Simulated assay, not measured.
Amino acid sequence: MIRVVVVEEMGLLRTALCAALSSEEDIEVVAEVTGMAELPALVRRHRPDVVLVDLAPDAPDPVEVVAEITGAVPDTAVLAMGRRWSQRIVGDLLAAGVRGLVGKDASLEALVGAVRELAAGGKVIDADAAVTALRPTSGPLTRREVEVLRVAAEGLPLKEIARRLYLAHGTVRNHLSAIMRKTGARNRMEAVWRARRDGWM
């Protein structure tokens, strides 16, 4: 029996994923969780064969958590689901130990097949993820906006960002507003995550 942990923040989708996977004779969903913070402890407790992680755009950067899991429980394979891929996020996830990448538009058959392949010790890389990751993209952010976002990623207040970059407060505020608009993010950390995911910084 393949033991699976499902990480999905949206309740309806999480329920559907768990039900679909559990309907397979050789798959058992041993736990489900809404976010990455609880995942390492959950994996240590249940020792699943596969962890299915939805890379939600407003979730914290998953790479550090994935690296912790694969380092602590190397027999557990991580399968990441994503809507958009970039060279950076694919490279970071694979370097952290992710063994599978599937698109959110994948069929249930493809998802189940990926779970089985990872449980058997194999790897699965979605074709779109591979192609997109190899296609360089400059993104919509200007050079200055990328500089502002890199400093903002440190969690610094507006005043410190302005001081660090030798800019006026109003200029930094305008850059951050433009960044939010271009990335579709609701806050700075989400903007950082999206920009890193899409290879814009």
Rank of each mutant, 00 (worst) to 15 (best):
A191C: 02
S107E: 11
K104C: 07
H169G: 00
P57V: 05
R181G: 05
T142M: 00
L79Y: 05
V78E: 08
L167Y: 07
I89A: 05
L156I: 08
M189G: 08
A56E: 14
V131N: 02
P136E: 06
D61I: 06
A106T: 04
L167Q: 03
V63E: 09
E147D: 14
L167M: 14
L108W: 15
A96I: 12
D126V: 09
D128Q: 15
W193H: 13
D126F: 10
R143C: 02
R188G: 06
A152P: 00
A153F: 06
V131I: 15
A195Q: 02
R88Y: 14
R163L: 10
P62T: 00
V112E: 09
G103P: 06
S86G: 15
R164N: 06
G91M: 03
G103H: 10
A133P: 08
V102F: 08
E154K: 01
R188T: 13
E109V: 14
G139I: 04
A120R: 14
L101H: 09
A120C: 04
G71F: 06
V66E: 12
L101A: 01
R144F: 05
R173S: 06
G91N: 05
L167S: 02
W193E: 13
G103Y: 07
G71M: 08
D126E: 14
R116C: 03
V115A: 00
V192G: 09
D54N: 15
H169V: 06
G100D: 02
L141E: 05
T76F: 04
V115Y: 02
E145Q: 11
A130W: 07
R99P: 01
G82A: 15
I89S: 15
G122W: 01
V112F: 01
E147S: 04
G103T: 09
T70Y: 07
I179D: 07
E147K: 08
A168S: 04
V192S: 04
V192A: 07
E190V: 00
